[in-house]
Amino acid sequence: MAAKTVLIVEDNELNMKLFNDLLVAHGYETIQTRSGTEALGLARQHKPDLILMDIQLPEVSGLDVTRWIKEDDELHAIPVVAVTAFAMKGDEERIRKGGCEAYISKPISVAKFLETIRRYLGEYSGDRP
């Protein structure tokens, strides 16, 4: 089976490196971008299996990019997992309402992070929502 591809949208350099190294170490292929506007083009081009979405981004917010993806006929089936430092009351609800399938708050727990990724990539049988 070919390695699953994850598109990482994250503007903080260190966090990008963390997510990238974690995924690569667990056998995933990654595509990286710091920019929300670039993310849509990359998604169309590579058709990733999953998108990790930071919410606070330069120029456009991760919620805007998520909306574009969910409105796109070709892309709307790709699960979008929000990974964000917005962790105040109401943030999770707002982000899920914005179209993200899952929400992970920073700082992440590595185990929970990997588990969420696996679940949305259908790697747990019968576990898909």
Binding site: N12, L14, N15, K17, L18, L22, A85, K106, P107, I108, S109, V110
Partner: peptide, 8 residues
Amino acid sequence: TPLNAIIG
């Protein structure tokens, strides 16, 4: 944001 990198 920095805590995420530190802990991760």
